[in-house]
Design a protein around this nucleic acid. Structure first.
Lengths: 252, 252
DNA sequence: TGAAAAAGTTCGTCATGCCGAAAAAAATAC
DNA sequence: GTATTTTTTTCGGCATGACGAACTTTTTCA
């Protein structure tokens, strides 16, 4: 078992495919992989041997394929890169979903860690900052389609004024639209306003990257509200009900 | 001579290296390439044969290496991808130059055309839009370092107010800081305000992508102001003096 | 001008990653 | 419970792209 060798783009693709297949079914089979990656069966066998040798998958000839803990960690890292790129393309560059996904698939193997982190922070910043937001992205769209001129810039500025006025009349005494994380529905995005939890729970929440100002997206809420699956800084987290209740957010 | 086959990442690297070496000296030699790409001499020979076969370089054993027109076009395309990524990393994500360059080097081979164009437009929009600009990027930096909280957001909003006030007092009757493109110094960036030129000159200018609202960066001005080398939408252009004089800009 | 040095090429090798054909194993059907 | 189908593996082959060693050409310089 070879340890800690950097994976090739190809092997990252295989690992990512296995990760997604396992998320849908219980375990992956060679056929699923070959269908998903559009490669011949014999190529899959070779890749599986390679991944098993590196200790990333549990695999023996003719056997089902599962991820080792190490393999799961690496796969989650690949998926995080993929999603970060795709989300940036879709949410900031307003690229169409399918095309964004394909581009992310190709670029995910080449993006270095530091750039990735920055990109995730930037995409978050665009959504969270009052100077950014969906209105601004719409302005970017307009700029792309018509080219911005003096007039459109003035329109843009008046938009900011409007937003400021709204803030001023609503806010003041109490920040508006602050709710508890547990009350969000899947798909909703929010800005973390305050961590109410204290002690150990507080520590755990902050360690996961949930800090005031951060963007948080609810992915799934289990029947009784426990656990709540969220995405923060590109990471998929599963929060206990007690943890979710300790987080106040402002819906975006 | 094989035509129109997609280049591998490796061959793109060779072509890019040749392009840069030729920009510095008159022609490239195998040694320059092997030094620049850190590969053995024998690998270079193979790559050169491959590029010559595809009609991208002029090459015969032991001879100097130059680009064919087709090869130059492809090389310029690779360089444009590289620079677009690097500029985005440096100007928007505030990544340090050297790191941005290395990342661009790896990612340039994987970015699809549509995403590239959008990214270039976005980087331009960030610099040109009043809601963006260097102040906003500084705000992003702050967000990265400290995490934005309610207070920093209010600071951000007051910054917009300040900017608005400045615009209001200065502007009104006449747009401020409008100068002619020919008066810019190398390194300066500006927003195109108006194309004064008429007829054929106007058409040529617009065809090159120089339109009101676009970002233009001066790279080099020849002794007598002819030509003026600029960068617009990722393209390096060489403007005749008459063309430069027909363009009014607002320095950013 | 004629060595010595430098640059460039050829050749054999290796690793990766894909493929198709054929063989082997497992699953399914009757 | 065997026969057929499906899945998986093995094997040989091919393309790319890198390398080192040995050889050839060009350049340098004495």
């Amino acid at each position: 078992m070879v340890i800690n060798e950097a994976l090739s783009a190809s092997l990252e693709d295989y690992l990512e495919a296995i990760f997604h297949i396992i998320a849908e079914k219980q375990a992956a089979r060679a056929k699923d992989i070959s269908k998903r990656l559009k490669v011949g069966g014999s190529s899959v066998t070779g890749a599986l041997r390679s991944l098993a040798e590196k200790g990333l998958i549990n695999y023996a000839p003719y056997d089902l394929i599962t991820l080792t803990p190490k393999g799961r960690a690496v796969a989650e890292d690949v998926v995080r890169r993929h999603e970060a790129l795709r989300d940036f393309f879709v949410n900031v560059l307003t690229i169409e979903e399918k095309e964004a996904d394909e581009a992310a698939c190709r670029m995910e193997h080449a993006i270095p860690k530091t750039i990735l982190e920055r990109l995730i922070q930037f995409a978050e910043f665009v959504e969270v900052c009052p100077r950014g937001g969906s209105k601004w992205i719409a302005g970017f769209q307009y700029h792309c389609d018509h080219g911005s001129t003096q007039q459109t810039c003035e329109r843009c500025i008046s938009l900011i004024l409007e937003e400021l006025r709204k803030k001023k009349t609503q806010g003041g005494q109490k920040p508006m639209a602050v709710v508890n994380l547990k009350d969000l529905k899947p798909g909703q995005k929010a800005k973390v306003v305050k961590i109410k939890a204290r002690g150990d729970t507080n520590r755990r929440i902050v360690e996961m990257g949930v800090t005031p100002g951060a963007l948080i997206e609810v992915e799934r809420v289990a029947p009784l509200g426990d656990p709540v699956d969220v995405k923060v800084k590109g990471y998929h987290l599963s929060l206990r009900k007690a943890e979710a209740e300790g987080i106040d957010v402002e819906i975006i």
